[in-house]
């Protein structure tokens, strides 16, 4: 949430869909804004390689695999471990049998993997918000927003606003 009292500010420009974004992004890069401080908001995913925060060295699938492994371990404990602690003979079946432990572990692996992947993605989405401006409903109609994060006293603030105006922004806002 962009707080007015905080040391950071977000300059937000809203553009009509046909506005070419490429020159704006290039200019921002020339002005030495790092990739982590620029965000593009749109109604559908438009960039395969976004300019944005924190996703770079992080692969979600690693989280999935680790969570799945923990799930298998949990499943083995659940189906095999507790049976060993509570060894009751039923119908000539072994107390611990690999196929049954396998079934339960499979389900637990999936449960852990899916839930953890989901939670990680949600946390990542929530944490990415400090770069982007508040949501503008016009984005849903095809407009594109560019947010630039900088320090409150950054001298580049004025030029960025001018750049947005020149490029034909419908609205420029400082949060």
């Amino acid at each position: 949430m962009a707080d007015t009292k905080s040391a950071k500010r977000i300059i937000f420009g809203l553009f009509e869909p046909q506005t070419p974004l490429r020159p704006i992004l290039d200019r921002l890069q020339e002005m030495k804004f790092s990739e982590e401080s620029i965000e593009i908001s749109s109604a559908t995913p438009i960039l395969a390689q976004p300019v944005g925060v924190g996703w770079k060295r992080f692969r979600l699938v690693h989280v999935t695999i680790i969570a799945g492994a923990i799930g298998i371990f949990f499943g083995v404990l659940l189906a095999g471990g507790t049976a060993l602690l509570y060894p009751i003979r039923t119908g000539g079946k072994p107390i611990v049998s690999p196929s049954i432990v396998g079934i339960i572990s499979y389900e637990m692996m999936m449960l852990f993997a899916i839930v953890t992947t989901f939670i990680t993605a949600v946390v990542k989405v929530l944490r990415s918000h400090r770069v982007a401006a508040e949501y503008d409903p016009r984005i849903d109609e095809g407009f594109v927003g560019i947010s630039v994060l900088s320090d409150r006293g950054d001298p580049r603030g004025g030029p960025v606003q001018d750049l947005f105006q020149e490029a034909g922004a419908v609205e420029v806002e400082v949060q």
């Binding site: 965000e39 593009i40 908001s41 749109s42 109604a43 559908t44 995913p45 438009i46 960039l47 976004p50 300019v51 944005g52 925060v53 924190g54 996703w55 979600l60 993605a121 990542k124 989405v125 990415s128 918000h129 770069v131 982007a132 401006a133 508040e134 949501y135 984005i139 927003g145 947010s147």
Partner: peptide, 10 residues
């Protein structure tokens, strides 16, 4: 907020 980072995570 519809940012590309969010889209990517999603």
């Amino acid at each position: 907020r519809g940012t590309q980072t969010e889209w990517r995570w999603l």
